[in-house]
Design a protein around this nucleic acid. Structure first.
Lengths: 231, 231
DNA sequence: TAGATTGTTAATCGATTAACAATC
DNA sequence: TAGATTGTTAATCGATTAACAATC
């Protein structure tokens, strides 16, 4: 029993401890988010774990277990209220929290992300793009200003920035990560291919490794060819 | 015991059955690939599971288990020969197999991928880009010709194409997947955000969900804020 | 109330880690 | 040979699934 529990024994446990939620569960949350949006679009107001399980191709048991990590979102005998459940999951995922992001690296990928509606759909605001290229600095993409990377620290100190999206060359990743760690920025979405681990700082890191994804596809294609050949 | 085993009882089992390898193991292979490249760059010719485990932040046990799914790549008392191990993992991952890809959708993301060195580094050739935009058709990106999507079937029938990279609007994903399933293409690398499942066809599917990745980062940032606030 | 469906505990399954005999 | 380190089996851990009592 933790100290917290002792201090508040009389209370209903307010927000069920999100501390011990496994990453397996966390990684499934965005999928619930997407399927709930589909249900809402269809005008469904109510869903049972078993109907949702059929749609999502997972077990009803898993759905109930997952959702219960965060509290009782359903009602016995009824199921889950779609709008309510959606609202709670949005809350968990920070949709509507007004998170603000900067993109660091105005190359092809950085610009593609800047133009992508994904951020807007998930309530994340891109507020600035940083690059070293003097030809880019001063221009804007999608109304987002491109600033010189030298301005980064000053910008971070005078604006609210929750996350940095890294799309710069692999070799510059570690340096940049250290610079970010010195600011108040909380998280890094890292596309550089240079793995980051938040051992030193308390930065939250999400490494996206597109190359790894491509290779697992390669693996399965090549395996298929081998099977076809050998029997 | 499977028929295969009966037929070849006198042989050393040539390629240890890759059939039962768990996806957990497969997803770790690209990471081994990357770390072996680093070792090679450093000029290391030999590595033990324990030294590699320290570098990769996983257990030595896991490394030995993983590699043994594909056969004995190491030598007792010595460890693993870096070049040999790298060669075997390249083989598993189809590096050097000359896989050919087409990109379907010449938008921002499609063009960013076309310019990305990731494919080349992993031995995948992008041979064509397809789009509907008449202004794009006839031009090229990175020496890769942009063709009209109407040409897709004819192209696939007359060229060797192993995979299609989908970067088109979400709404067109299912239609396109069906068109692809009619060709000899083996795999889809799907960036559309519209999940695909290879239930009907025997297509190999790799769904990349950047939005989901962003949201798990959001989750952890918001959790951190809540912790800071509540203690 | 009776029927339905959750929340939650218990059972199962799979993946990771530990241990050690085999062997280079 | 002695030392080192793998390959592999056994033990542990965690995540998924099943079952059912609680309850709307």
């Amino acid at each position: 029993m933790k100290e917290k529990d002792i201090l508040y024994t009389t209370d209903e446990q307010a927000t069920p401890s999100k501390e011990n939620v496994s990453t397996a569960v966390i990684k499934r949350l965005p999928r619930y988010f997407r399927y709930l949006r589909i249900l809402m679009r269809e005008g469904k107001t109510r869903i049972s774990s078993s109907e949702l399980s059929r749609r999502m191709n997972i077990t009803a048991s898993q759905i109930r277990q997952d959702l219960n990590c965060f509290g009782g979102f359903g009602q016995q005998g009824y199921g889950y209220n779609v709008n309510y459940l959606y609202a709670r999951i949005c809350e968990l995922l920070g949709v509507g929290a007004g998170l603000q992001a900067v993109i660091i690296g105005g190359g092809n990928l950085g610009r593609a992300l800047a133009k992508n509606e994904m951020f807007e759909k998930r309530g994340v605001d891109i507020v600035a793009i940083f690059d070293v290229d003097e030809n880019l600095v001063g221009t804007s993409i999608n109304d987002i200003p491109i600033l010189h990377i030298d301005e980064f620290e000053r910008y971070a100190a005078t604006h609210t920035v929750d996350m940095a999206v890294l799309t710069l060359p692999k070799e510059q990743t570690l340096d940049m990560a250290h610079r970010i760690a010195e600011t108040d920025i909380s998280g890094i979405w890292n596309f550089t291919g240079q793995e980051l681990h938040s051992i030193e700082s308390d930065l939250v890191i999400e490494n996206v490794h597109l190359g790894d994804s491509l290779m697992t596809l390669n693996y399965r294609i090549v395996s298929k060819y081998n099977e076809d050949r050998n029997g």
